[in-house]
């Protein structure tokens, strides 16, 4: 069941690559958050990958419930509600609804992203099938999400779409950490979540500042600091 969601997650990246409306990108972030939640619940609810070491003395069921609560908080509350809501606010304030002049036309961008996704699938399935600790589908899709996000950061022109690509990259990393059938201690998970959340918050604030100080929200505006004149 979770395989379908993983493939859908990969497809959301293609949609982000092919459209220029920032509102659609933010909606895709919501979708990704929900998909990640479904993947966790369907695929991994019985594998206690969230190690609640610090609550070791507590009842086992209680720990399980805590873990699920944490997952709900991380994926549903933070990834698909708080961050998109904040970004929507920034979007409304800055009135930058479209990332129209990407360095590469959207069609080519879509094609290249599809190729990356395909290669991600193929390489992992061909090479790591025998490796028992890693689930190939998770691994392949997450690596391709990370690479597509990095690629989108380089081609998109407005700072806000860079932030969105940064978040999709973090989603890819989240999926990668699921692909390893191993626990990250919850304290690390919490720290990671907090860091990402604050990073997005700070970046959003900076986007607003850039909007008020610079003429428009293009990355090319941010090139005043250099060594030669």
């Amino acid at each position: 069941m979770e395989n379908i969601f993983i493939i859908l997650l990969g497809l959301t990246m293609l949609y982000i690559a092919s459209t220029s409306r920032l509102l659609a990108h933010i909606n895709m972030l919501v979708t990704q958050g929900i998909l990640l939640f479904l993947i966790c619940i369907f695929g991994l609810s019985d594998e206690a990958w969230f190690n609640l070491g610090i609550f070791g003395s507590l009842d086992k069921n209680f720990i399980h419930i805590l873990g699920i609560l944490f997952i709900i908080f991380e994926t549903l509350v933070v990834k698909s509600f708080l961050i998109p809501l904040f970004l929507k606010k920034v979007l409304n304030k800055t009135h930058a609804h479209r990332d129209s002049s990407a360095n590469i036309p959207h069609f080519y961008s879509l094609v290249i992203s599809s190729i990356i996704l395909f290669l991600g699938f193929m390489s992992v399935n061909l090479h790591f099938n025998t490796f028992h600790d890693v689930s190939p589908l998770f691994f392949g899709v997450s690596i391709s999400i990370i690479i597509i996000s990095l690629w989108l950061i380089t081609i998109k022109r407005t700072v806000l779409s860079n932030v969105i690509s940064f978040i999709t990259m973090e989603n890819g990393i989240f999926l990668l950490s699921l692909s390893v059938a191993k626990e990250m201690p919850i304290i690390v998970n919490l720290g990671v979540l907090l860091d990402i959340f604050i990073a997005v918050f700070i970046l959003g604030m900076l986007v607003q500042e850039i909007n008020s100080e610079f003429e428009d929200l293009e990355v090319s505006q941010l090139s005043d600091l250099k060594d030669y004149e």
Binding site: M169, V180, A199, L206, E213, D224, L225
Partner: peptide, 29 residues
């Protein structure tokens, strides 16, 4: 200028550190 510097700092370092986390996940493998 300080906005530009802060933006570059947070953005580049966050991406770098995110890649380091990928490294940590690979280390757990």
């Amino acid at each position: 200028h300080s906005i530009e510097a802060a933006w570059k700092y947070v953005f580049i370092c966050s991406i770098g550190i995110a890649l380091a986390f990928v490294g940590i996940i690979l280390l757990t493998i």
